[in-house]
Design a protein around this nucleic acid. Structure first.
Length: 798
RNA sequence: GCCGGGGUGGCGGAAUAGGUAGACGCUACGGACUUAAAAUCCGUUGGGCGUUUCGCCCGUGCGGGUUCGAUUCCCGCCUCCGGCACCA
């Protein structure tokens, strides 16, 4: 008997697929499409480990499953190749990023080939390819023209290690998301994208998506929509006024002081001469604090400005303070403080002995312990007394509106996107600065603005990009007036290229458009997107923003890019994420060599629920390898002496179809594998042809090489992927014999096998024969009998 | 602090419109085959106890509750992981 030889089989089918271009797909309006996408990787020098495999196997299983169901499946792969590691390598080793990127891509590609996935490599994209980033720049120009990209000098988060500005989304607990270095505040002239203009649509769109609840929640929290009111306070004895945002206009009568952020422009204007020295000292100190320091120290600090605001509802004079617990970039950078009903204000008022006036009571009218931060009934609020919070919010807002001293307002936590990076290895921002014309976008027919070769990649650390030093590149002519001008030297963040790459796969070589609209209309949007949870609010939010913009300008006809999202769990080793520095990386190459790609693919699925982190066990793959051999041997043995199908084998076969289909659909891929194992364990030494063919087709998404070989052994012409996914016959799924558990007082005493339609008495009679049941019933009286057909018979006795 | 998700054998994990807890696999142990080993195959494998072809008790983080019956539902805790964190 010939035995399973994974090396020969996998090599054979890999070259078959290549020779027949089995994975090259073309648009076919007569066939339904399925777009199954992996988050494209950054091709690092380290190569792939078994953790990377997990997501790629998952998406390939789905791609092949859909293909077997007759879909025209787009399953592409490419490279998110701009980024700091290549640039840092260039600095350290003097290798041009283009060179190291090319070599890393080659390594990655070789390793990806090992998976045996059905990637259509003719559609490969690379974000660093000028033919690609031409369109990344083109999108930026469109945004610029519509006022969505703008330049502004402002304090931003700056990573001193990466030597570049960061977006808010790239700061995690006060540190750089990439390298963990605490970020600093720097005043820099920055390119910004007006993502906040899309805040509401980004929030609304989430409701339409088939995404993990967790990611939806994270994006909702990040966007952070709050409804409330703007309230205008006059300043006593001055011509200025202060606008505040509050979500609790119902507590307005309880406002006993106001606070301005240290950066607020009115601070210097309203401070009285007596308070000037203290205030200036405080402001200076507050501004010098890093965001980490500001976050670490939650002790309230502040200084009185000497000025007073006038509460628009009751005319009360209340002191205006400066305090760094008020943030300049949220709302208006100023608050009304209601210490009775806000924990932070309460703490501040306690510390500085400011008055605390309760204006909200419990629903039943009792005055609660302070601070009382939830809704209730108004007290001490003049004409609004007795009104509940919900109504009072509306009533007070309306009242203010009539007086011209306020209005309903919505605020978001999300800020505009800091888009410039002071680094070399990214897309140049296609803007020219002309002394006469100002900022001028590079005309579309002059794109791409390509990266020049440089000698020194070292970031300047001054907030200028290394590109600024290349005078022959920087000096250019103004596209408008033809006069001398300078190029923008900031580059785009890595996210820019990944915001829209999935569009390019539809038409990767198009030189006249981002992609042919007809092809976009056919292939997009992405039906299933598979990747890690780490991009929950970065890439996935930015992409959604880009697509909404491209929808608005008519480039695409959909406004959500990813219909369904699946986040695969991490593969851990010794309880930790795999990393070179921890030395716990499991290399797939050796496993493929020893057990084959099919075994590793199945083990990646079998390791645990795909959405959950799972611990790698070196022995685990052994069991899968044995299973594959059992399948192989079953087919080979059966071919020598093929039995006829029986009712029993047909029932098992249909049950398998139903179970596997159901479990793939619900992403319970670990239990798909166990379903196959159970099935094979139930069979005898040989089984009929029909059963074998079904088994091979069902197994094909998981173990494509094995399935192709067995399909051929069974006498078919390749490929097994030309076959169709079988349908389970509902009639064959009905069991005629069932096992019923017998319980006495809810405790299981044994089981009986009876026909599915057995009457209660028959089950009862069979149960009475069981020793342990007899024991338990001995001398007792049966009070009640619960019979659930096919499940249990419970006897309640006393 | 707030929000979300978990805690089941030696291990990875099954099973929740309430119905035989531990499927499947790993490990370990025993056996068959072999000169021997590897591979393969067969058996046992949650804990405890007994009168051991059988039977009893305990057992899904902890404590209560609902129910004929709870890993599943409810209440109160402990604990781990992830996200956010002075956003008014």
């Amino acid at each position: 008997m010939n035995s399973y030889n994974h090396k020969a089989i996998e090599a054979k089918w890999r070259s078959y697929w290549e020779e027949t271009q089995a994975h090259t797909v073309t648009m076919d309006p007569d066939k339904p499409k399925f777009y199954c996408l992996d988050m494209f990787p950054y091709p690092s020098g380290a190569g792939l480990h078994v953790g990377h495999w997990r997501g790629y196997v998952l998406s390939d299983v789905w791609s092949r499953y859909k293909k077997l169901q007759g879909y025209n499946v787009l399953h592409p792969m490419g490279w998110d190749a701009f980024g700091l590691p290549a640039e840092n390598d260039a600095i350290k080793k003097g290798i041009h990023p283009t060179v190291s990127t090319a070599s890393n891509v080659a390594t990655f590609k070789r390793q990806l080939h090992e998976i045996g996935a059905m990637y259509d490599w003719t559609r490969e994209v690379n974000t660093t390819d000028p033919g690609y980033y031409k369109w990344t720049q083109w999108i930026f120009v469109q945004m610029y023209k519509r006022g969505l990209a703008y330049r502004k000098e402002m304090p931003i988060n700056f990573c001193p290690s990466c030597q570049t500005g960061l977006a808010n989304e790239e700061v995690v607990q006060g540190a750089c998301e990439r390298c963990g270095t605490p970020v600093e505040k720097r005043h820099l002239m920055q390119w910004m994208l007006r993502i906040t203009k899309y805040a509401d649509r980004l929030l609304e769109g989430l409701k339409t998506l088939d995404w993990p609840e967790k990611v939806v929640k994270m994006q909702e929290a990040w966007i952070g929509r709050s409804e409330g009111a703007e309230v205008v306070f006059a300043i006593d004895g001055a011509d200025e006024q202060i606008t505040v945002f509050t979500t609790r206009p119902d507590t307005l009568f309880g406002a006993t002081y106001m606070v301005l952020a240290p950066e607020h422009e009115l601070v210097s204007k309203i401070t009285t001469p007596e308070q000037k020295e203290d205030v200036e000292k405080y402001v200076k100190q507050a501004m010098s604090k890093s965001s980490v320091e500001r976050m670490a120290n939650k002790e309230k600090t502040g200084v009185f400005t000497g000025a007073y605001g006038i509460n628009p509802v009751n005319g009360k004079r209340i002191p205006i303070w400066v305090g760094d617990y008020v943030l300049i970039d949220y709302g208006s950078g100023a608050i009304m403080a209601v210490p009775a009903h806000d924990e932070r204000d309460y703490e501040f008022a306690q510390k500085f002995a400011l008055p605390i006036i309760p204006v909200i009571a419990e629903k039943d009218g009792t005055v609660p312990d302070l601070p009382f931060v939830i809704d209730g009934v108004l007290i001490n609020s003049g004409p609004f007394d007795g009104m509940d919070s919900e109504n009072a919010k509306k009533a007070i807002t309306e009242h203010l509106q009539k007086k011209g001293q306020g209005r309903a307002s919505v605020q978001y936590k999300m800020r505009d996107w800091v888009f410039s990076r002071q680094r070399y290895w990214g897309e140049p921002i296609p803007i020219v600065h002309c002394p006469k014309c100002g900022e001028v976008p590079v005309p579309e027919d002059q794109l791409p603005v390509t990266l020049p070769d440089v000698e020194n990649y070292q970031p300047t650390g001054t907030g200028e990009s290394p590109l600024a030093a290349i005078t022959e590149w920087v000096n250019t002519t103004c596209p408008k007036c033809g006069g001398p001008a300078k190029r923008e030297t900031n580059t785009m963040p890595q996210w820019a290229g990944s915001c829209w790459y999935f569009l390019r796969y539809a038409d990767p070589d198009n030189d006249t458009a981002l992609a042919d609209p007809e092809k976009l209309a056919y292939w997009l949007p992405v039906d299933l997107y598979v990747g890690g949870i780490e991009h929950a609010v970065l890439h996935l939010l930015y992409s959604r923003f880009y697509i909404k913009f491209l929808y608005d300008i008519g480039v695409v006809d959909f406004d959500e890019p990813f219909v369904r999202l699946f986040n695969q769990g991490m593969v851990t080793k010794d309880g930790a994420k795999m990393s070179k520095s921890k030395g716990n990386v499991v290399n797939p190459d050796e496993l493929v060599e020893h057990y084959g790609a099919d075994s590793l693919r199945i083990y990646e699925l079998f390791i645990g629920p795909p959405e959950v982190d799972s611990e790698w066990m070196d022995n685990g793959i052994e069991g899968v390898y044995r299973f594959i051999q059992r399948v192989w041997n079953l087919v080979v043995r059966s071919l020598k002496n093929m039995p006829e199908p029986t009712l029993a084998s047909e029932k098992l076969r249909h049950r398998l179809i139903a179970t596997v289909t159901e479990r793939i659909e619900s992403f319970k891929l670990n239990t798909v594998v166990s379903a196959f194992m159970e099935y094979v364990n139930q069979l005898g030494q040989t089984v009929d042809r029909q059963s074998l063919e079904t088994l091979v087709i069902l197994l094909a998404p998981l173990a494509p090489h094995l399935a192709e070989e067995l399909w051929q052994l069974l006498g078919h012409k390749p490929s097994v992927f030309d076959a169709r996914w079988p349908q389970a016959d509902p009639a064959m799924l009905v069991a005629d014999q069932v096992t019923v558990a017998i319980q006495v007082n809810g405790r299981t005493r044994g089981t009986v096998d009876v026909p599915a339609d057995a009457a209660q008495e028959d089950v009862m009679n069979a149960a009475a024969a069981i020793t342990s049941v007899k024991n338990a019933l001995e001398g007792k009286e049966i009070l009640k009998t619960i019979y659930v057909p096919g499940k249990i018979l419970n006897l309640v006795v006393k």
